[in-house]
C-alpha cells in the first residue's frame, strides 16, 4: 500500500494551484504533485507515492551506503 517508486524530475510547473512536475519512471512519464518537496529540482530523483513526491532521494548517500558494503572484506 505504501508503495513508492523513484523517478527523475524532468520539469516543474509552479503556475497552477499545486506545484506539479513531470517525472520519468524508467521511460514512463507521469504528472506528480511536488507540494511536499519544495526543495526538489529538475534532475533530482523523487520518491513518489500515490501521485505525490514524498522525499528527495539522496543519490550520493545511497552510493556511499553501497560502497561501504562493498568494502567489507570477504574473509
Amino acid at each position: 500500500m505504501c508503495l513508492a517508486i523513484p523517478g527523475q524530475i524532468l520539469s516543474i510547473d509552479s503556475t497552477g494551484t499545486l506545484r506539479m512536475g513531470r517525472v520519468d519512471f524508467g521511460g514512463v512519464i507521469q504528472e506528480v504533485c511536488l507540494e511536499y518537496t519544495p526543495e526538489i529540482a529538475v534532475g533530482d530523483y523523487a520518491i513518489v507515492h500515490v501521485g505525490f513526491a514524498i522525499a528527495r532521494l539522496d543519490v550520493i548517500r545511497a552510493k556511499e551506503i553501497l560502497e561501504t558494503i562493498a568494502q567489507i572484506p570477504t574473509e
Binding site: 500500500m1 505504501c2 513508492a4 494551484t17 499545486l18 511536499y36 500515490v50 505525490f52 514524498i54
Partner: peptide
C-alpha cells in the same frame, strides 16, 4: 481514503484543495 501515515498527506491535500475550490 485509506492508508498509513504515508498516504494520509495525499488525502489531506485533495480535501484541502476541494475546500479551496
Amino acid at each position: 481514503a485509506i492508508g498509513f501515515e504515508t498516504t494520509a498527506p495525499a488525502t489531506a491535500m485533495a480535501i484541502r484543495q476541494a475546500k479551496e475550490l
